[in-house]
Simulated scan of single mutants.
Amino acid sequence: MMNNQGRRDVVTIALITAICLFGDSMLYVVLPIHWRDGGLTSLFEVGLLLSVNRFVRLPLNPFVTWLYQRISLRTGMAIAIVIAGITTAGYGLGKGFVAWLICRCLWGASWSLLRLGSYFSIVNSSTSVNRGYLMGMYNGLYRLGSLIGMLVGSFAVEKFGMRNVSLLFALLTVVAIPLVFRSSSSNTILNNQQRTPTLLGGIAENWKDKSWLLMLGSGMLLAYIYQGVLASTLSLTIQQNLPEGFLLLGVTIEASSLAGFLQALRWGWEPFVAPRIGFLSDGPRGRMPYFLISLVLAAILFWFIPSPLPRLLWFGVLLFVQLTATLLTTLMDAIASDMASARSNMGTMSTYSFLVDFGAALGPFLAFQLGDSLAYHGASLLLVILAVCWYKIRPQKKTL
């Protein structure tokens, strides 16, 4: 395992990321319901705003990779925190599509600094025997920010309004600044001698490596399904299935609050489940058996989300979908990190992050155009295709 200081650095980076996520995570369950409060005029604008921060990251990721060859992780994280605070305050102060568009673009820059800096740090600090565990620990801890943003944010907006909650989350972002100085990662994250090929250059160089190409495609499609389709449409899907809300102990729970609760359950168990699945995948069986089982299970569950099931069974489907999100995200990140480490350069992680952002950006936009049923059934078929493709190359890649 890595030394204690290195492990503390991963924890610190994860907590910084979590705090910066408060505002962004809140939007995914609140904005599809309360879009008029922000001065928006249609759900089309909602889908575009929930996607644009990811589209912005596409050209930014190569630049951020280059930047981290010249500045320290500490500096990059500090810049990201400042931007995150400004954008979260903007969700409360801004009105109209243009103001929201500027805020979401700025958040895309903040997330590029946070996510790529974290990837590079973990890959450089880990080995094949602890990489899955550390990636799982990072994913589990930083998603505590999504837990607070979705659960607390969704309930608070119902009581206090989006403006007040956004300003509170922006104020809390200041707490992340002292954490930056607790990290010992004051040197550059990337060695300047490490090659960082462009997206097209990396694909041209590795186009014969089926597992490398499949890894990139899988990361993109899983991000499209979970970060895009599921995260952006769940509150609307619940509202359509339960327009009167859900009565619990005499209290009616609105769709956005219920969606926040269901999605927040995932972030609550991730600090425990993600490191565990990462640890198991570091073992002699490798990552592939767990990955294949998770893909098949997810495909079955997504197919039934739009189905007219009994209420409790439908909730059970949604809960297990969130579990597969934890499993597949952790395992996919670990597989990508394995391939980046094997090539001794960060170009693989930069390309992987680029395509993950592309897939996540397409999710909200396409989901609101296709409709819930087609989007969820399409996701199910994509998961089946991924499972078949990985099963076919599995004998050639026993280390995965």
Score class of each variant (00 low, 15 high):
residue 221 L to F: 00
residue 137 M to V: 13
residue 381 L to C: 09
residue 299 A to D: 01
residue 217 G to F: 05
residue 292 L to V: 09
residue 82 V to L: 14
residue 136 G to A: 12
residue 103 C to F: 10
residue 386 L to Q: 00
residue 26 M to R: 09
residue 389 C to H: 00
residue 399 T to V: 12
residue 128 S to N: 15
residue 107 W to S: 07
residue 123 V to Y: 05
residue 363 G to I: 06
residue 296 V to D: 00
residue 390 W to Q: 03
residue 276 R to G: 00
residue 146 S to A: 13
residue 49 L to W: 12
residue 203 I to Q: 04
residue 136 G to Y: 06
residue 400 L to W: 12
residue 273 V to G: 00
residue 238 I to K: 08
residue 395 P to I: 10
residue 111 W to V: 13
residue 216 L to T: 02
residue 92 G to Q: 09
residue 241 N to T: 13
residue 232 S to P: 05
residue 214 L to I: 01
residue 385 I to F: 03
residue 220 M to V: 02
residue 95 K to T: 15
residue 213 L to C: 07
residue 125 S to D: 10
residue 4 N to L: 14
residue 275 P to K: 04
residue 190 L to Q: 13
residue 331 L to W: 02
residue 89 A to M: 08
residue 360 A to G: 15
residue 344 S to I: 07
residue 317 V to I: 12
residue 206 N to Y: 11
residue 283 G to P: 01
residue 346 M to Q: 10
residue 308 P to Q: 14
residue 36 R to Q: 11
residue 189 I to D: 02
residue 305 I to R: 08
residue 290 Y to C: 03
residue 380 S to T: 04
residue 124 N to E: 14
residue 7 R to S: 09
residue 144 L to P: 01
residue 244 E to Q: 15
residue 222 L to R: 00
residue 171 L to T: 13
residue 120 F to S: 02
residue 264 A to N: 04
residue 223 A to N: 06
residue 213 L to W: 01
residue 317 V to K: 06
residue 299 A to R: 03
residue 85 G to W: 02
residue 399 T to E: 15
residue 253 I to N: 02
residue 62 P to F: 08
residue 133 Y to P: 01
residue 103 C to W: 06
residue 111 W to K: 12
residue 61 N to V: 14
residue 81 I to F: 07
residue 10 V to F: 08
residue 206 N to C: 07
residue 22 F to P: 02
residue 84 A to R: 04
residue 341 S to Q: 14
residue 284 P to M: 10
residue 259 A to E: 01
residue 127 T to P: 06
residue 241 N to V: 13
residue 66 W to N: 12
residue 337 S to L: 09
residue 7 R to H: 11
residue 360 A to K: 00
residue 89 A to S: 11
residue 373 S to G: 13
residue 346 M to I: 08
residue 28 Y to C: 03
residue 266 R to W: 08
residue 160 F to G: 03
residue 109 A to Q: 07
residue 132 G to N: 09
residue 342 A to Q: 13
residue 253 I to G: 04
residue 275 P to H: 05
residue 115 R to Y: 09
residue 370 L to K: 10
residue 367 A to N: 06
residue 194 Q to H: 11
residue 139 N to Q: 15
residue 32 P to Q: 06
residue 282 D to R: 02
residue 362 L to P: 00
residue 121 S to K: 06
residue 79 I to A: 09
residue 117 G to L: 14
residue 396 Q to H: 14
residue 23 G to Q: 04
residue 295 L to C: 00
residue 159 K to D: 12
residue 144 L to N: 02
residue 177 I to W: 13
residue 372 D to S: 11
residue 200 L to W: 13
residue 379 A to M: 08
residue 348 T to H: 04
residue 269 W to Y: 15
residue 50 L to D: 06
residue 284 P to K: 12
residue 238 I to W: 01
residue 370 L to T: 12
residue 285 R to A: 14
residue 261 F to L: 15
residue 234 L to A: 05
